[in-house]
Amino acid sequence: MGNKQPISILKIGGNIIDNPSELKQFLSDFSKIEGYKVLVHGGGKSATKMAQSIGLVPQMIDGRRITDAAMLDVVVMIYAGQINKNIVAQLQANNTNAMGFSGADGNLIRSSKRNHPTIDYGFVGDVQKVNIPLLETLINTGITPVFCAITHDLKGQLLNTNADTIASELAIALSEIFDVTLSYCFEKPGVLYDSEDDSSVITSINEALYSKLKAEKAIHSGMIPKLDNCFNSLSKGVQKIKIGHHRMFQDSTALYTTITL
């Protein structure tokens, strides 16, 4: 156990992707992280804007996108194309040898189409398997993988997949080989007691405090799936999880939230 190499897995949210100067700064910071690393990105508002520009009306249920065939075409084009390749190109400019992937590439992440008793999510995937041997080979040859939020079902169908979940599943899979730190980076400095007050960072959350915060309704609804993912990852071998603004990687005084069991 003690001989595992460390690896950093970072997931960036839409508000970083939607802001070109913020994204540029994040990718500069990410490039300075030493050792092995993996980046997972969401889609930001670009897919919604593109969909609206061609007359599609995005549908959301409980914060999750319903992905019909037309919307799937848009998210594949934006996530796996425009956003992913833009990030890879910027990382190359920062001397990080990145390669962009969907789950279909090299059969890296296989999913199954979500089967929900009452809601048809359309072409939405739930992760089933990560191709650990290939991922390990890529990482050991000095490649920094950059994953978009698209997977496949091994039957020829691409599937839109939650980026937080992809980051979590990659972290769980790689924890068999590496000492994994999983970080969720977004526009806030961490999980906040008061969503309007950026200084109210909760610096550490364990399961007992999480239950209490949920009971008090102190945690914003959008944060609950993220934290559920975190505790699931920790229970399955991930060593450390951080949530906060990307400045936490280069600024030793920056506040952030650490999630522990």
Rank of each mutant, 00 (worst) to 15 (best):
residue 57 V to F: 02
residue 41 H to L: 01
residue 102 S to E: 01
residue 74 V to P: 06
residue 12 I to N: 08
residue 244 G to F: 11
residue 242 K to E: 12
residue 180 V to T: 09
residue 201 V to W: 11
residue 49 K to T: 10
residue 182 L to E: 07
residue 120 D to G: 05
residue 11 K to D: 12
residue 3 N to R: 05
residue 94 N to R: 00
residue 67 T to E: 09
residue 62 D to A: 14
residue 185 C to T: 05
residue 43 G to M: 08
residue 20 P to L: 05
residue 164 D to Q: 11
residue 206 N to W: 09
residue 137 T to S: 10
residue 161 T to I: 13
residue 252 S to C: 01
residue 209 L to I: 09
residue 66 I to F: 04
residue 197 D to F: 07
residue 40 V to E: 00
residue 47 A to V: 13
residue 243 I to M: 13
residue 91 L to K: 11
residue 198 D to W: 07
residue 185 C to V: 01
residue 185 C to L: 09
residue 250 Q to E: 13
residue 98 A to L: 08
residue 14 G to D: 00
residue 37 K to L: 03
residue 13 G to D: 06
residue 22 E to M: 07
residue 202 I to F: 09
residue 169 E to N: 05
residue 187 E to S: 14
residue 139 I to C: 09
residue 43 G to C: 06
residue 177 I to E: 00
residue 208 A to I: 12
residue 85 K to P: 01
residue 178 F to P: 02
residue 49 K to R: 12
residue 1 M to K: 12
residue 145 P to C: 04
residue 102 S to I: 08
residue 67 T to C: 10
residue 99 M to V: 12
residue 118 T to G: 02
residue 240 K to G: 04
residue 40 V to C: 02
residue 221 S to H: 06
residue 152 H to A: 13
residue 218 A to L: 06
residue 8 S to W: 09
residue 97 N to W: 10
residue 52 Q to N: 13
residue 118 T to K: 14
residue 123 F to S: 08
residue 138 L to P: 00
residue 239 Q to M: 02
